[in-house]
Simulated assay, not measured.
Amino acid sequence: MGSRMFRLGLGWQPHPGMLALARRPVHELARATGATVGIFVLREGRALTAAAVPGEWDTFAPMRAGTAFPWTTAAGKVLVAGAPAGLPVDPPTKAWSREAAQIREAGFAVDRQEVAEGVCCVAVPLRGRSGTAVAALCALVDPSQPLSPLTASVVRTGRVISASMQGRPGR
Rank of each mutant, 00 (worst) to 15 (best):
P125N: 08
G158H: 07
R46N: 13
W12S: 15
A135M: 02
T67C: 10
I161N: 02
A116P: 00
A85D: 15
A65H: 12
V122Q: 03
V78G: 01
S144R: 15
G167L: 01
F60N: 11
E114M: 06
T67S: 11
I161M: 04
I103R: 07
A116E: 11
L126K: 05
L150E: 10
R7A: 14
A74M: 01
V89L: 07
A163P: 01
P16T: 05
A139F: 09
R43F: 13
V141S: 06
R46I: 11
L126W: 01
M165D: 02
R4W: 00
F69V: 10
S148C: 09
V37A: 04
V26F: 05
K94Y: 14
G118M: 06
L19H: 05
E117R: 11
L140V: 13
A50V: 12
L48H: 14
M5G: 11
G11R: 15
K94W: 13
K77I: 05
C138P: 03
V115C: 06
T67H: 12
G107S: 08
R98H: 15
A52G: 09
R43K: 14
C138I: 06
W71I: 10
K94D: 15
R24H: 13
R31H: 10
T93G: 15
A135R: 08
R7F: 14
P169C: 04
L140G: 00
R4G: 07
P92M: 07
G82R: 10
A65S: 13
C120R: 03
G167K: 01
A65D: 08
S162F: 01
P62F: 03
A74L: 02
